[in-house]
Design a protein around this nucleic acid. Sequence first.
DNA 1: ACAAAAGTGTTAGGTATACACCCATGC
DNA 2: GCATGGGTGTATACCTAACACTTTTGT
Lengths: 275, 275
Amino acid sequence: MSTGTDAPATAPEGYDAGDYPPFGVTVDLAIFTVRDGALKVLLVERSADPYEGAWALPGGFVGVDEDIDDAAWRELAEETGLTRTDWHLEQLRTYGTPGRDPRMRVVSVAHVAFAPDLPDPQAGSDARCARWWAVDDLDLPGLRGGDHDSDVDGAPTLAFDHARILAAAFDRVAAKIEYTSLATAFCPPTFTLGELQHVYEAVWGVRLDRSNFRRWVQQTTGLVRPAPTDEVRPPQGRGRPAALFEARTEGVRTLHPPLLRPADARALRADRSAR
Amino acid sequence: MSTGTDAPATAPEGYDAGDYPPFGVTVDLAIFTVRDGALKVLLVERSADPYEGAWALPGGFVGVDEDIDDAAWRELAEETGLTRTDWHLEQLRTYGTPGRDPRMRVVSVAHVAFAPDLPDPQAGSDARCARWWAVDDLDLPGLRGGDHDSDVDGAPTLAFDHARILAAAFDRVAAKIEYTSLATAFCPPTFTLGELQHVYEAVWGVRLDRSNFRRWVQQTTGLVRPAPTDEVRPPQGRGRPAALFEARTEGVRTLHPPLLRPADARALRADRSAR
DNA sequence: ACAAAAGTGTTAGGTATACACCCATGC
DNA sequence: GCATGGGTGTATACCTAACACTTTTGT
């Protein structure tokens, strides 16, 4: 490594504690789910000092001997009340602008999690108030044609730089279901093709052609497979019972071909597409 | 934020120095260029303690009052000897596994930079040895059909977890030129369509059909535009002089349609495609 | 019977792939 | 002339988008 910045001189080799600027390192989680036909994200209400009353992404400090990924999984378990499952959790980006936390220099490694619909109002492990917010009800920079200033009715105030993180997180989700099997991560263990289509429609905010969607799913290797038993789902309301499917594997798969979202759904995020 | 891990108890609010585990935060850079028909990356040879003699990504500590992005740009300038240009530099991922640096707990924010072909042997600002390495000559996990154990002839030893970072960085580059205009970032200010095609071929390790590539470039909005003067490039060796083009904008643009790499070029990275 | 959702099929238009062919230059 | 790279065209296979139609359930 080369020499660092000027302020606290860092020796290229043989450095030890005290030689380097100390940082706090945290993980922040954008946990998404699809529920009631909308994409939602879990936020917690702050009960203390900076940004009191504002809503923030769940998160916390990384332990000295803890891997960053482990810290993210730990926070996910704490916030949702569920133990480490087969959910998908991935790094999003690291945010470390000086002053983003008024108290001290904190670098936050933001993550994105894909969760199926959970038993409704999981109270956070610590007594703070936590709830799902529809992404459309948030006031995020450059989202869904958002003007960012045109405050959505009842949009919560977001703490720190979490509006920025959320915008990037949403972007990631919308892009990722195009070319990976992650849309199934929003579904229960078995699901109908209609339910899977609803995931795409909720995330992208568009309507898809049922027939074409069905053809795409079935010709796309590695996305779904018929549920082991040939049972069907008794219809929720009216309509013919639907065949049940399950995700093809636990992990993430790259899809061939991808399902590209319609151009009009993509245009809304064009200005932020330059990572 | 919720409560942190056990070791150094972190107060959810009102914490201050000493309450949190101290981390060193660095930036590491994977600076790519295309030269001699191959994708190359800039590495520096370590002259000291851990991993002495091994090759590492250029990088260094982030200053206390320095933004992470600024630190990355600073390192880029130091390593290439050029001031902040219009190059493309983006965050890749953060690596923070305990023990990745044997000396202390360091969290590294890895970046990827796209550079045009530079005046050849830029000596690093500090006297260490720096050179371009062809990606194909490196022994990276799961790359180009790599077995990772089948050591490439003359493959350098890579320091820390930099082999892993490089694999992810290469992956990002290969994916990014599919759907953004970033291939032009490897080209000089004006370039021929043949040169642009060579970029794609070098990065993906495939041959493309000249005719189809040309049609794609020209029908794709926002990629290239004819150079202001209608000059041509005198042929390097033999052949007809070629028309010159320039990148359409400074920034990054999402391409419609994208240029998807052939399936066989994608298969080589399939196992790593699950982020 | 009717509405709603599942499932099947068909067709027109566009895009990609693999070529074939001519042009301009250096050797 | 001939090799090399630039530039243009075309035909086929394939994929996509749009829409029509049938089936099965609840009310």
